[in-house]
Design a protein around this nucleic acid. Structure first.
Lengths: 227, 227
DNA sequence: ATCTCGAATGTTGTGCACATCATCCGTCGC
DNA sequence: GCGACGGATGATGTGCACAACATTCGAGAT
């Protein structure tokens, strides 16, 4: 999940991590939309391994709730019902606030620079039809914000919930049910506000801003899918 | 994890779930203490399958952080450092309170009866040297308390953190560094108080009581391991 | 024409043999 | 005597062939 992770680790473990990260990215960035069937044989051939190690990766993804394998039928990218999506978002709200309360870590100069760069990307990335750069941007922002807490279990759980839900939200956006330009403007505003809070060293405020935006973005999606 | 889950599901999926639940229980109930090496071949023989499906179970357990496989060495039950344990407990505190705020479900008569039965078991189970019944009791209480929220993601995460940490706490208790009789009395008191809160329908109070007890039990363990 | 049954096909699941890796221990050289 | 090297051993990781399963499609009876 880490952006700078080249993962050149040799041996079986490194290969596993590489394949896992690659497939998870494809799912999160909607290369594999919910409902897509994944071919074990094709993926194994692509990564240059047999089905055995690839199946181990799929088993991990299944444990993370990203795919589901059915005997004799296939392995499918999971979708999330609106009810469970709501439950997950209500939970993510609270966890976002915990980010500012549990083991907060003041950002160093390099992390601040990372946020600045993200803001530039957000301002540049207006009117983009392709989902990929947009998905990548908000994912990078999420990952950067995660660095504001040193609580490892919290980060792990945040990531877990994030990858399971954000792709569904992204799918809704690019199903043209939500105004993309508006979403982009709102997101830019979020980055600006978080950055302002971080500049004065108020991590709790930064987490509250994110909490508010998570809440509002889900509400916009809910109204978009309902209408 | 569900107590009443006989899991007579046929086919590959049922077999997988059975083996997974069995091994997780053994780890949680300290049949396999942290550091124990698990033999793939022995376990496969015990369950009457080959190594292949068993390895899938171990891969899942590795994703849950309960075991770790090392190429050429073995598969070991994980231990948890005191630092990460503290982070996890701080997180569990907050999540416990969320149990009473996110999608709370008033307990029906059968759930109340379940809590009553747990209280009886707690009062009966005094001065027991064997860790197993004690571990089983507090685990059953945890599972019963989980039924007080309908937020599925929250329950999943609670379970995830519970199985990773409580076994470590149990291990510390039975390393004779903590007075078992005292722990038992405190636990009985917790069940009584939660039951009292549930009788007047105050689920938030019930969650606050549990939050307080999680906090105190970790503090007792920390002092016990330090001294 | 329609319904039913069964073979064909394609997928995931399993068993087994072998490869790869880390550790241990005996032996050889010094 | 002591240290270093190398094979023996046993573990997990991989590849491949086959089994189990679900779906599809077509032939046959009604």
């Amino acid at each position: 999940m880490n952006a700078q992770n080249d993962d050149i680790t040799p041996g079986a473990r490194g290969r596993f991590e590489r394949m896992h990260a690659e497939l998870r990215n494809r799912i999160c960035l909607l290369d594999y939309a919910p409902g897509t069937r994944l071919s074990e044989e094709a993926l194994a051939a692509e990564f240059g391994v047999s089905r055995t190690p690839l199946r181990r990766v799929l088993a991990r993804l299944e444990g993370e709730g990203l795919v589901q394998s059915v005997h004799g039928v296939g392995t499918f990218v999971t979708d999330v019902e609106i009810d469970e999506l709501g439950q997950t978002y209500r939970l993510r709200l609270e966890l976002a606030e915990l980010n500012g309360k549990l083991d907060p870590v003041p950002p160093g100069p390099e992390l601040m620079a990372e946020f600045e760069a993200l803001l530039d990307r957000a301002r540049t990335l207006s009117r983009e039809a392709d989902p990929k750069p947009y998905a990548q941007l908000i994912m990078d922002f999420f990952l950067a914000a995660q660095k504001l807490t040193a609580n490892e279990p919290l980060r792990e759980i945040n990531e877990r919930l994030y990858v399971r839900t954000t792709r569904i939200w992204l799918k809704s956006i690019f199903a043209a049910r939500i105004d993309l330009a508006e979403e982009m403007a709102v997101f830019t505003r979020e980055v600006e506000d978080v950055l302002a809070a971080l500049r004065i060293g108020d991590l709790h405020a930064a987490s509250l801003i994110q909490r508010a935006h998570i809440s509002m973005s889900f509400e916009r999606m809910r109204r978009g899918t309902a209408g």
